[in-house]
């Protein structure tokens, strides 16, 4: 069993829906596991579009997560 945690940063509507800009979550194997965990914990996030960055680098596919990495959840903004 892995121990440790990840820091999750949330932006825009995601922060609004969860009421949190920053979350500390238990260690996850990868980003798919993390998003599944988030949807379970915050069902209000279901259906909201966002992309993910791991340690401030955008990812396009499921990515393994090491202890201490920071994951950012990035929704699109349209306003002008």
């Amino acid at each position: 069993m892995k121990t440790g945690f990840h820091t999750i940063k949330m932006f825009g509507i995601l922060a609004e829906k969860t009421g949190q800009h920053v979350l500390t979550v238990p260690l996850m194997a990868d980003t798919d596991q993390l998003t599944a965990w988030l949807f379970e914990r915050y069902p209000q996030l279901e259906g909201i579009k966002f992309t993910l960055a791991v340690n401030k680098q955008l990812i396009h596919n499921n990515t393994p997560l090491d202890e201490g990495v920071e994951v950012a959840l990035l929704p699109p903004y349209s306003g002008g």
Binding site: G12, I13, Y77, S78, G79
Partner: peptide, 10 residues
């Protein structure tokens, strides 16, 4: 590119 949402921008 620039975009805004409530109190946030890109």
């Amino acid at each position: 590119y620039g975009a805004v949402y409530k109190y946030e921008g890109q």
